[in-house]
């Protein structure tokens, strides 16, 4: 049985996981430094880097112990590590540690693209899925529609031209005086509000697959200033509906244009959003395809998804060299 240990430190989560080649997850450990960032309303790179350095060794040890392995001599065949994109100071810690473990155990290691990791997350829960599929990858740093012809074979159809969806959520939440991160807060409030109370523009109506959310954020600010009597819950519901509408409209376009698609998947932190999950389920049943809605722990950053992508990359491209450096701006389109 081929076993991979994966390490993920691209942002504020220190994560490690042991996964086998059949994509069974033997362990998955995540230690977040999010509490340290809350007061700043966003992830502070220096704080994140310092936290990774403190947590990296204990997190890896726990992932190995949880998988029933000896931390000093584990029966690991390959180490997968996120080498980009992300915060460079954070990436460097996971990457350096991964190389050191590889040297210590005399096993190969492979650098993994974090976004490709997100694309592999649905496979961990549905290894039997049929191709091709379309994935809506939405997080605080990214928003894109990706056509996947098979594992590791992806084509980016469109992405955001300004803010990421999660970023818009955080900015609107800050404007409304809600806690950081804003996504879960707005989602919770939206459940009690009425969508459409606040009139927001429908944007990105062109025949492409790109997104734009910065105008929507500005529109929320203007509309709430003009209509201060609108309840916060209604603002949240209106904003959430507008974001989902745009994302789902582009997803629908993709399904119309690609009748061979067998499934539609959600990935990334915003995939935890209830309106989006509902919308994707409806879209899937309308088009007669499978809805791949990973569990919440698989949507957000984790190392199991890095292991899955790493096992694929190692099998197809071989190991990485110790000279590998971090690539903070590594685009998904450059991965092959």
């Amino acid at each position: 049985m081929v076993l991979a240990l994966a390490i993920e430190t691209s942002c504020d989560d220190t994560a490690a996981s042991v996964v086998d080649a059949q994509l069974h997850v033997h362990s998955s450990v995540i230690e977040s430094s999010i509490d340290q960032h809350r007061a700043f309303g966003g992830v502070v790179p220096e704080l994140a880097g310092r936290a990774h350095l403190t947590t990296i060794a204990p997190v890896v040890r726990r992932a190995l112990l949880d998988a029933g392995l000896d931390p000093h001599a584990p029966a690991i065949d390959v180490i997968a590590v996120t080498s980009g994109p992300g915060l460079v100071g954070s990436l460097l810690i996971g990457l350096s540690a991964a190389k050191a473990y590889a040297l210590a155990w005399d096993v190969p290691f492979v650098g993994v693209n974090h976004l490709e990791g997100h694309l592999f997350a649905p496979l961990l829960e549905r290894p039997d899925l049929e191709w091709p599929i379309v994935t809506l990858l939405v997080s605080g740093g990214h928003s894109m529609i990706v056509l996947q012809h098979g594992p590791g074979q992806h084509e980016v159809l469109g992405e955001t031209i300004d803010d990421a969806a999660g970023e818009a959520y955080d900015k609107v939440a800050r404007w409304l005086g809600l806690a950081y991160p804003g996504g879960p807060e707005i989602d919770r409030l939206a459940a009690t509000g009425t969508p459409g109370t606040l009139k927001l523009p429908v944007s990105m109506t062109g025949d492409d697959y790109d997104f734009s959310f910065s105008g929507l954020k500005t529109a929320v600010v203007r509309a709430t200033e003009k209509n201060p009597e609108v309840a916060v819950a209604d603002v949240a519901a209106s904003f959430q509906a507008a974001v989902s509408e745009q994302l789902l409209r582009k997803l629908r376009r993709t399904l119309v244009a690609n009748p061979a698609l067998r499934a539609v998947a959600l990935a990334g932190g915003v995939a935890a959003n209830s309106a989006l999950r509902r919308g994707v389920e409806e879209l899937a049943s309308e088009f007669g395809v499978v809805a791949l809605l990973p569990s919440l722990s698989m949507c957000t950053d984790n190392a199991a998804m890095i292991a899955a992508a790493g096992l694929y990359r190692f099998a197809h491209n071989g190991p990485s060299d110790f000279a590998l450096s971090a690539r903070p701006n590594w685009a998904l389109a450059e991965v092959s």
């Binding site: 942002c11 700043f40 966003g42 992830v43 502070v44 790179p45 915060l87 974090h114 990214h142 950053d301």
Partner: peptide
């Protein structure tokens, strides 16, 4: 210096 980044 209070610079923050979005989570990805």
């Amino acid at each position: 210096n209070f610079s923050t980044r979005q989570r990805s």
